[in-house]
């Protein structure tokens, strides 16, 4: 396998059963994630883009077809192994930030280290590093509620980076932010991509999608255009 390939989706199908109705969320999606790729996925709601993101992020597995990440097929992994992949290989940034309100900024950033198998790394030093990276080194002791939306999203990015993942999954990361703040957040994400991180980003906004190197459009569970 190509050394530069991080993930490979091959003819992936995903079907859900909702009561008696079977919903085909993905119908034969194939794509390759290389190291340093920056994909933007666009599509209307119900098009299957969230399902695609879930599968790329190892939160869900395909019904048919295969997803190979870091050389391993997810269909061969149990729940614990998928958790391990999410913990070490993937970072998540959500639209609603999803920080723990009762924990400090530093504790939020350190959260993924709690679920890491080896504790040899100096987590506190690493937390200081990633907070520096997002420009929040002097907010470590704050609670999320004391921060602005843009600052909260930067904490979430720092949290996503703490275990040095290869792939960053961003689900409408600027959906809750004004355009100035959105531009700041996208600048951070773009800089991360420039330093070698693979990014997959879902958005409605063409201006946001413009930060990506490749833009995919998904419709009715199929990729319809690749630009």
């Amino acid at each position: 396998m190509d050394n530069h390939v991080l993930g490979q989706l091959s003819d992936v199908y995903k079907t859900y059963r909702v009561g008696d109705i079977t919903v085909e969320a993905l119908r034969g999606v194939s794509m390759t994630l290389h190291r340093g790729d920056f994909f933007a996925i666009m599509g209307v709601s119900g098009s299957g883009k969230t399902t695609l993101l879930n599968i790329l992020g190892c939160l869900d597995v395909p019904t048919a077809g295969s997803y190979v990440i870091n050389g391993k097929d997810v269909s061969q992994m149990d729940d614990d192994m998928l958790s391990g992949i999410r913990n070490e290989l993937i970072g998540f940034v959500f639209q609603n930030f999803y920080l723990l309100h009762y924990a400090t900024v530093l504790e939020n950033v350190l959260l993924p280290t709690l679920y890491k198998d080896n504790h040899t790394a100096d987590n506190t030093r690493r937390a200081a590093e990633v907070l520096q990276l997002v420009g929040l080194q002097d907010r470590a002791g704050f609670r999320p509620r004391q921060l602005s939306g843009g600052q909260q999203q930067r904490v979430a990015i720092a949290r996503a980076l703490i275990n040095t993942p290869r792939l960053l999954i961003c689900d409408e990361p600027t959906g809750q932010l004004d355009s100035t703040t959105a531009a700041e957040i996208m600048a951070i994400i773009k800089a991360l991509n420039n330093s070698g991180k693979t990014i997959v980003l879902v958005t409605h906004d063409r201006d946001i999608a413009a930060y990506a190197n490749q833009v995919l459009t998904i419709k009715d569970g199929q990729l319809v255009s690749v630009t």
């Binding site: 999410r86 959260l111 949290r159 275990n163």
Partner: peptide
């Protein structure tokens, strides 16, 4: 529920 989902996404196992 939301917190549990975040923790799971960040790599928490069921046992955690």
């Amino acid at each position: 529920t939301n917190e549990i989902g975040i923790r799971r996404a960040l790599g928490a196992r069921k046992n955690d």
